[in-house]
Structures are given as C-alpha cells and as structure tokens.
C-alpha cells in the first residue's frame, strides 16, 4: 500500500477514508488488507470444568479449561473469551488462581468474565493475566461500575456482555445472572447506555439461540451493531461457517464468538477463516499451517 506509506500519519489533516473494515463493498480496495474480523472461541467454565449448554441450561461437561486454552493458543486464534458461568450465581469473586493458570500459557488476547463486581476484582484479574474483562450482571445493579472501570483501566479493557432474548412484543430484552433473571431492559437502549458509560466493546449473546447451532439471532446482532459505535461481538447460535458470514455481513458485527460449534463439530477457527477469506472478508492467518 504505497499510497498510505507516503503519509506516515504525522499530520491530523488530509485524512482519507480508506479503512472500511470490510473491503468486499468496494472491489478497488481489494488489495487493502485492513482491520481483521476476529473469530473468538468462547470457553464456559463451571467448577473448573469446561461446559456447554443449550439456551443457558442443561450444561454438559466437555473437558477442562486449561488444555483447551493451550490448544487455542497453539493454533494462534485471534482472541479467547473465558466466562465463569457460576461465579455470579454463587455470589463468588472471580477465581484469580485459575485465571493465572489459564493465562500463563496463553499468548493471545484473553477476556475473562464472571463474578466481577468491583474495581478491585478487575485489578486482580488484570494482574492474573486477563487482558480484558467482561461485565454482565453487575452492570444492571451498578451501571457506574462500567464507568469507573473505563475511567480506571480505559474503555479498551471493558467488554460489556449482554444476554438477550426476544419477547412477544418483538423486542429483545436483557437477562442477568446467566440468563436466569429478567431485567426488563430493552437491548438497544441498554447497549447505548453501556457505550455511553464507557464500555469498549459489546458481547451480545442470544439466550434462545445459544447452544442450538442454528445460527445467530441476526436481527438482534444487527440492531445492536447499528446503534453503537463500539465493536460488537456476535454470540449465541453459531453452527457453521456461513453463520459467521451472516453475523458479519447481515448482522454487521466486528467479531464472531462460538463455543458449541468448536466443541461438538469438526469445524475450526482456521477453517472459518479460510471460508470467510474466500468470500472477501479480511481475516488473519487464514493460510497458516496447523
């Protein structure tokens, strides 16, 4: 990209809009490789076991967390999300020792969630090797926690996680406590509020689609993506590579997260990248050998 190199960004003036994120919209930009779409395996963790459920229920044990983290690290995935699904329910603090163990062998960006209620919890998690933290339930009781976290550690480290389900009126509403508590908050309004409070990213999970492998709730993903200016990670329902493509192109998300699909099928993050790259979406490492 010689055109860019001529202007090494020294001046604020003369900016050009070259970075659209996806280049398939403009074939002329085909050789511009830009900010990559992220494929993010999500690991759900309960009593030190790796689990996966369907619609936030019927949890099934699928292994242990540490070996899974090691495998994903070796395969150089873009990022990992590890969520402790029982910490909030059991009114526990995050398990810092386990986090330190996971992160010791993880040289990819690591987001940790579950049970985070205070600034001190976040500080300890960052010290234990988390790069970003995900806050869900605590934000409903104490929205200011998001603001304090962003002020202290920077927005870039605060992922606001939203679990949402569709109600009879056609709107999506948010759930707290791992899908078990209705909050009455409409999802778009809540997402905008989280952005305003200082969240740096939104992880949006469909409670109904989660674990079904039937595809994301594209309506939900798109609604949230179109109404915030921060990156959105689509979650809940991915079962094949085309679902990723849908979440990115129709849902307009910046990243896609998946769990069941990687646990229960032969499909891999690398396979997903090759599929997406063939269809003109920017990914990284699509050609690496494993």
């Amino acid at each position: 990209m010689p055109d860019l190199i001529r202007h090494p960004g020294i001046t604020q003036g003369g900016r050009r809009s070259l970075d659209i994120g996806f280049y398939w919209k403009d074939p002329k930009k085909k050789d511009l490789k830009l900010l990559k779409v992220r494929i993010i395996p999500t690991l759900l963790w309960k009593d030190s076991g790796l689990v996966k459920g369907v619609s936030f229920d019927s949890w099934r044990r699928v292994g242990t967390v540490l070996p899974a983290v090691k495998v994903y690290n070796m395969r150089e995935v873009d990022e990992l999300i590890v969520l402790d699904i029982t910490a909030t329910r059991e009114n526990r603090e995050p398990d810092y020792e386990s986090v330190a163990e996971f992160s010791g062998d993880c040289f990819v960006p690591l987001t940790i969630g579950g049970g985070i209620r205070t600034i001190d919890h976040i500080k300890k998690l960052l010290r234990s090797g988390a790069d970003k933290i995900a806050i869900n339930s605590a934000a409903y009781d104490d929205p200011d926690l998001i603001a304090r976290a962003a002020m202290h550690f920077g927005s870039q480290c605060v992922v606001a996680s939203i679990d949402a389900g569709r109600m009879d009126d056609g709107n999506h509403y948010c759930y707290a406590h791992c899908g078990s508590a209705r909050t009455g908050k409409e999802v778009v309004a809540w997402a905008k509020e989280l952005e305003k409070l200082g969240a740096g990213e939104i992880l949006i999970t469909s409670v109904e689609k989660d674990g079904t492998m039937e595809g994301y709730d594209l309506d939900l993903i798109r609604k949230v993506s179109e109404n915030v200016g921060i990156p959105v990670i689509a979650s809940g329902g991915a079962g094949n590579y085309q679902h990723f493509h849908d979440a990115l192109s129709i849902g307009k998300s910046s990243a896609v997260a998946a769990a069941s699909m990687f646990h229960f099928t032969e499909q891999t993050p690398l396979g997903a990248k090759q599929f997406l790259q063939e269809r003109g979406i920017c990914v990284r490492n699509a050609n690496m050998r494993q």
């Binding site: 990209m1 860019l4 190199i5 604020q12 900016r15 050009r16 809009s17 070259l18 970075d19 659209i20 994120g21 490789k33 830009l34 900010l35 990559k36 779409v37 992220r38 873009d78 990022e79 927005s155 870039q156 740096g200 990213e201 200016g229 921060i230 990156p231 910046s254 990243a255 990284r284």
Partner: peptide, 18 residues
C-alpha cells in the same frame, strides 16, 4: 478520529503495520 461512520472505536483487533 473515525474516517467514516463505519469505523468503530476503540480500534480493537488485528491490524497491519507498515
């Protein structure tokens, strides 16, 4: 400063250096 409405901030993810 986002160069278009499609640009999201923070800048999160894998990008290239020249």
């Amino acid at each position: 400063i986002p160069s278009s409405s499609l640009i999201r901030l923070p800048h999160v993810g894998w990008n290239e250096i020249y």
